[in-house]
Amino acid sequence: MTQYPTDLTEKQWQVIKNILEPQARNRKHPLKEIMNAILYINKTGCQWRMLPSDLAPWQTVYYYFRKWKLEGVFEEVMDALHSLIRKQAGR
Rank of each mutant, 00 (worst) to 15 (best):
M1I: 14
M1A: 15
M1H: 13
T2Y: 15
Y4R: 12
Y4V: 02
P5M: 09
P5G: 09
P5R: 07
T6F: 10
T6G: 10
L8N: 05
T9M: 13
E10P: 03
K11P: 07
K11L: 15
Q12H: 12
Q12R: 11
W13G: 02
Q14Y: 08
Q14G: 03
Q14V: 04
Q14N: 13
I16G: 08
K17V: 06
N18P: 11
I19E: 03
I19F: 07
I19N: 04
A24V: 09
R25H: 09
R25C: 07
R25E: 03
N26M: 08
N26T: 08
K28E: 02
K28I: 02
K28H: 04
H29E: 00
P30E: 09
P30L: 09
L31D: 05
L31N: 08
K32C: 09
E33W: 07
N36H: 04
N36W: 01
I38P: 01
L39Y: 02
L39H: 02
L39K: 07
Y40R: 02
N42F: 13
K43R: 13
K43P: 01
G45M: 11
G45P: 09
C46A: 13
R49S: 02
R49D: 00
L51C: 06
P52N: 04
P57H: 05
W58N: 01
W58L: 01
Q59I: 05
Y62N: 13
Y62V: 05
Y62F: 15
Y62I: 06
Y63N: 00
F65H: 09
F65K: 04
R66T: 14
R66S: 13
R66E: 11
W68I: 01
W68Y: 11
L70M: 12
V73T: 12
F74E: 08
F74A: 08
F74I: 11
E75L: 13
E76Q: 15
V77L: 11
D79E: 12
D79C: 05
D79Q: 12
A80K: 14
L81Y: 13
H82L: 03
S83F: 11
L84I: 06
L84F: 07
L84Q: 07
R86V: 01
K87Y: 11
K87F: 09
Q88K: 14
A89N: 00
A89V: 02
G90M: 02
R91D: 00
